[in-house]
Design a protein around this nucleic acid. Sequence first.
DNA 1: TCAATGAACTGAACTGTATAGTTTAGTTAG
DNA 2: CTAACTAAACTATACAGTTCAGTTCATTGA
Lengths: 210, 210
Amino acid sequence: MEQTKPPRADRQLSSEKAEAILEGGMQEFLAHGYAATSMDRVAIAAGVSKATVYSHFQDKEGLFIALIQRLVEGKFRSVFGPANAQVLQTAPEIVLRDLANRLLDTCMNEPQFLNFMRVILGESGRFPQLARAFVRNIEQTSFKRLRQYFTTCPQLKLSDPEATARIFIGTLVHFMIVQEMLHGKDIVPMERARLIENLVKLIINQAEKT
Amino acid sequence: MEQTKPPRADRQLSSEKAEAILEGGMQEFLAHGYAATSMDRVAIAAGVSKATVYSHFQDKEGLFIALIQRLVEGKFRSVFGPANAQVLQTAPEIVLRDLANRLLDTCMNEPQFLNFMRVILGESGRFPQLARAFVRNIEQTSFKRLRQYFTTCPQLKLSDPEATARIFIGTLVHFMIVQEMLHGKDIVPMERARLIENLVKLIINQAEKT
DNA sequence: TCAATGAACTGAACTGTATAGTTTAGTTAG
DNA sequence: CTAACTAAACTATACAGTTCAGTTCATTGA
């Protein structure tokens, strides 16, 4: 078969290649971590020549940083869910339960999210700027949103909304880490709904008490 | 120096060398992660020849697994602190506050602990058996201990001690991850005592309510 | 309409270094 | 004497990053 027909003539646009490289780099880096990822495999995954990779990004570290920054600022920023508008009309019990469920759902529905967290946590010693970007874009945002809700919700009068927000998010994130990331589901089983129910009640009762 | 009993069946290798290799491997693997650690540097760190490393351990993966298993079962098992005996006489408020402080202290006092967690979390996708060993030896143990306390403490009558234990530990572990591991101290500052105070009050009030 | 230009890209070879793991010849110590 | 150990060389592979000759294609200019 001597055919060499190029089936499709792609327009040579630099930004499309850059996009493909970031996409291929995401696959590789999230699957194997920083050190175990090779630039040859990134180029193959991106469907691009190695030289093109190095014409768009300075080096392996530069690609990795650009890639993680992008994920932190875009793709995974929505993990902690957007706040609805008329939540203040709804009972806090329901709002909080829904929020918790949405937060944990997002981790399951984004299959890459667990690997993303693994890379962020595993490389947080060698790439502290990426860890800080994660905190700034994801943790801080969710703290702020929840504290805001705790502060403005008429039925809730918490003495320290910020600390309560930390307890809420911390409980759920740790649950996700132990059950999913560390494969603890069968070792320390716990129904998601049961944990959420207790967490929500703890906060509601606290508010009623004051 | 008293000598060890010379067993004969299998190969008899010096346990001192094995110890040194595990120690050197710990330094290297915890500092650089699995993929970025070289066996040459492990041998140098252990003060041992490379051939000796391979006579004690089958390969890099075998050394890594043996090493992490050991850390999980020994060195870092105490992180979540031993339970005292006469705690049941003390007010729960004080017991829980002390427990939380001890838990967070241990992370600071064991400077390697953060890197240990980074490796466990970062490699949990490629070494699920190590992640499970971590859950079995550290998370499960602390859940059990705290649930036991919640169940037996006369002043506390929690409706779900297991879930409450998860909330307690999850809040503290997440705090440690965000503030220390992800370098979030300056981005999302939070006094440790303030968080602990709120967490403890949340649980105490819940108990009084019932 | 048709070259001609030039920038983006390709594939493959290439450099230099690092790696996992083995082998060998020789040394130490019980 | 022997078994653990050492130092160093060695094999074979992989990697980051570069170079280069050649291809593709859109734009230009006549």
